[in-house]
Write a protein that binds this DNA or RNA. Sequence first.
DNA 1: CTACATGCAAACCGTTTGCACCCTA
DNA 2: TAGGGTGCAAACGGTTTGCATGTAG
Lengths: 141, 141
Amino acid sequence: MENIYTEQLKNNGLKNTPQRIAILDILFIEEQPISVDDIYIKLKEKNISINLSTVYRSIEAMEEKKIISKLDFLNEGKAYYEYNKAGHRHYLICKGCKKITTIYSCPLELYEKTLEQNTNYKIEEHKLCLYGYCPNCNKNK
Amino acid sequence: MENIYTEQLKNNGLKNTPQRIAILDILFIEEQPISVDDIYIKLKEKNISINLSTVYRSIEAMEEKKIISKLDFLNEGKAYYEYNKAGHRHYLICKGCKKITTIYSCPLELYEKTLEQNTNYKIEEHKLCLYGYCPNCNKNK
DNA sequence: CTACATGCAAACCGTTTGCACCCTA
DNA sequence: TAGGGTGCAAACGGTTTGCATGTAG
């Protein structure tokens, strides 16, 4: 597993350090986007010696290289990150337990083209989040 | 015009103050969502005596009463506000000149239902932003 | 006259930065 | 051994808060 991270860092001209590998591993294992301070807490729990600013700098570097990606539009106030398993995606967020589910399909390709025609904009991308209650939280309301 | 703001505040149990009326007027006149510090600057330009924290508190109260609405997911780092001219809407943002266009139609109603069936979530709302270049910025690229 | 609004200054919180030291390639 | 990476502490920017004062209803 670590070999993958090592490769990925090397291929992108980033040096291999125990801190970066640990960050990648946390993001990889985590099944949903996670905030910077949660990454930091998980690193500490694993007894990995690291500074918060190093987390920020490592994350920034890896995001630039598209190894991970940033979600700065989800929850007000702070950024979330996830390992880059696929390209375009959307998010389904439970308003109860705050669980974030990543959606890999996109219902908007056609709509983008229509909108381009209507507005004369050259549309390049979009961000979509859906909010609601997961089956479990919905039951307990 | 001021009568409308006065009514709106009264109906929502908020006191009429020159500061609140001035904020509402700026948001009403502005044709696109605007940041808090820009509201503050415009107030100062109009020689209205107000403190930044009053802007924040007034805006918060008016947002709670649904007189205005908050966009905290658009541009990283700070919140934007707009006068509540209609309910549900989306945003088209020019990556060149940063102009924000509000879109009042929604292509996702059907999709929401499909997703509800597929995930068993109770979906309540969504946020959508599209990014691209407006005709003018596209020309100059 | 009383509860809500405001101004001011200080705190807050996520994030960034400058600088000295460290360590990977 | 050179240049990127790290730790630490301090700064930053948007936002919030405590408290005293002011004012709309």
